[in-house]
Each structure stands twice: as structure tokens, then as C-alpha cells.
Computed example of a mutant assay.
Amino acid sequence: MRVLGFESSCDETGVALVEVPEQGAPRLLAQGLHSQISMHQAYGGVVPELASRDHIRRVIPLTREVLAGAQLGLADVDVIAYTQGPGLAGALLVGAGVAVALAAALGKPSLGVHHLEGHLLSPFLSTDAPEFPFVALLVSGGHTQLMRVDDVGSYEILGETIDDAAGEAFDKSAKLLGLPYPGGPHLAKLALQGDPKAFELPRPLLHSGKPDFSFAGLKTAVLTQVKRLGESPTEQQRADLAAATQAAIVEVLVKKSLLALKTSGLKRLVVAGGVGANSALREQLNSACAKRGVRVHYPELSLCTDNGAMIAMAAAMRLQRGMGQLRRDGSFEVRPRWDLAAA
């Protein structure tokens, strides 16, 4: 069985083809991805209407590219999956509309997939795939959650952010430092030149004893430091503040992950989402978990951001287990807000 997956929840258009063997793990045959970063940079963030229009332009050419890369045709596809939510409503409608229309034209079933489940299961495409059960740290621009994962569709929230997500803290702090969109990677790069101890920044809820997060106070503290530096901070001051900001975010993510592992009694951690690509986070998690005999798994760097491969993979894993609501009547709905526990 082959699953063609579409991702269009925000500012990346992703298409991928995954093959599901009769036995063994699904494997990625081909994928294509277009990022809208350059288009949104002029506005300092994602403009939903522009994102939707660009998805319309990119999705068909990317589909052709993926099928050509796999040396297959549409007739070789068995199921068409798409991101049903959460995400930007207009952007979701593009991917869902194309996927369901294509499925109807081919006489094939379609399957809506939860965007976060795609991230959560993306490490199964890695050469070092995890095994169930595990603790998952989902950390991206819009979500920061810790959960216990016993199998596909079996998720228990252990902790989550009560305000900003870690990715938002990276991006908003970067904007305060005058860095371009998307700010997180630029802040991480600038932090390499800085001293993380040059500024004292808060670690909200670090000692609360619960695996919940809060990053709004950190963002406010960064704003205060930026104002104190005045209109013309030196490059070293900016680098030091970037390093201190990254250190605060990473310390909270690491400590809360260790707490979730301890309370759950599990010895396996999966890290997924865009912030999972941060090298400082990976280094500190690897070090801390190695001391505790915990295995850590990540998706490949190319699969940390939104992509079609994770959607096709999540659909494939659900289908292997006889799960998922396959549709054949051409109907669909998108869910801009959608709790993963209800997926």
C-alpha cells in the first residue's frame, strides 16, 4: 500500500509518498517541500492569506515532482492523506481540498491526519526509530507539550505550556533583538558568539514540580534587557542576550523532560517539532539522558519542520493498525483548533 500525504497547515507546502509493506515499518519513497520563509520575511511573520495562495501555486507541481522521484504514477497511490488540523484555516483548506478532490477523481479513499501526530511519529522515519512506549516532547512554534505515548492514537498529556510555546519565545525574543523572520534559527546562530551567563533571565515554573511550561515571563524579561541596552547595543551584547535567552529556554525544556521521564518511569524520549532541530537542546538532552540511561530519538533534521512525509507516515501507521476514518464520498472538514487527545 502506498500513501500520498499533503501538508499545508502554515507556511510550508509538503507532499510525500510512503510505502507500507505487508510486514515491517513504512518507508519514505519520495518527498517535496516548499518553504514560504522568503515571502513572509517582509512582514515579520506569516500572513495567512498569502500563505493560502502560495499553497495553491505549489501543491500540484510538488505532487508531480514527488511522483517522478518515486518513479510512480497516480494510479500507484492507494490512499491520499492530508493535514486536517490544527493550523491556519485557509491553508488547511488548500491541502485538504486538493487531496480529497484527487482521491475522488482516482476513486481512492482519503484520510485526515492531525498535524501534531505527524510530528510525534516523524522519528519513525529515522534510521534510529523509537519503540513504544515513550515520553514525547513536542516543541514547535505553536506547541510545547510533554506526553506519554503508548501506541499510535494512545496519548496522555503530562504537561504543556500555559502561555507562549518555546518556539514563540525563540521567535519573539529574536524579533526584539532585531533578527529577521523566522527568528529562532537566527537567534540560535547568534547565540554561538555569546556568553549565556552575561544576563540573568528567569526560568518560569522550573521548580514547580510539575511538567508544565511558561515562557511569557521570559519574553518580558528579554524585552526589559533590550530596553536597558538602549537603541545601539553592541554586537557582543546582542549575542550575549541571545545566548542567555537560548540557555533559559533549553534548561526549562531539558528539566521538564527529565521530570516527565521520572514520573512516568519510562526510559525512552522522542523529541519532535521545529525546535527539536536546535543543536543546544539536542546536546543537553543527549548528555542529561545518557547519565540516566534514557534513549533519545529525533526525526531527521529535514523532517523537523512541517512536511508531507510526517503526514503520510502518520496515516500509514494508523492504517497498519486498522485505525483512521477513511472517506470515499468526497467530503471533508478542516479543524484549525484540534486537541490531539481527541484525534
Rank of each mutant, 00 (worst) to 15 (best):
Q71H: 14
G273S: 11
Q320N: 10
A169C: 15
V66T: 01
S331A: 14
G5M: 07
E7C: 03
A96R: 03
Q41M: 08
A81T: 05
S126F: 03
H207G: 03
A272S: 15
T234P: 06
V296A: 03
K189V: 05
E200H: 13
S110A: 14
R327D: 02
A75M: 00
L67P: 02
H186M: 12
Q193A: 15
L301W: 02
L33H: 14
V100G: 08
K189D: 11
G209M: 10
E251L: 06
T220D: 07
H40N: 12
L62I: 09
F213D: 13
T63F: 00
P185W: 09
E65T: 07
T13E: 03
E7K: 06
Q31Y: 07
D76M: 08
D306L: 04
T224L: 10
G90Y: 15
L192N: 06
A136N: 00
R27P: 00
L218Y: 12
S35P: 02
A315C: 00
Y82E: 13
A91K: 14
H119M: 11
A70Q: 00
K172Y: 03
P86T: 10
D128F: 11
A316C: 14
H119T: 07
R282Q: 13
E7Y: 06
S140W: 09
H34S: 15
T83Y: 09
L17I: 02
M310D: 08
G141K: 07
L206Y: 01
R2Q: 15
A221H: 13
G24E: 08
A290Q: 15
K197G: 05
S8W: 11
K108N: 05
P233W: 01
P204H: 10
A309M: 10
V135H: 01
A70F: 00
I60L: 14
C10Q: 02
A244M: 11
L176P: 02
K189T: 09
L192S: 14
I60E: 10
Q320M: 13
A70D: 00
P185L: 13
D339V: 07
L319W: 06
F6L: 02
L50K: 03
M1F: 07
G209D: 06
A166G: 01
A101V: 00
D240Y: 05
F170G: 13
T144G: 12
V77D: 00
D240W: 06
A89Y: 05
Y155N: 05
E251I: 09
Q145P: 00
A239Q: 10
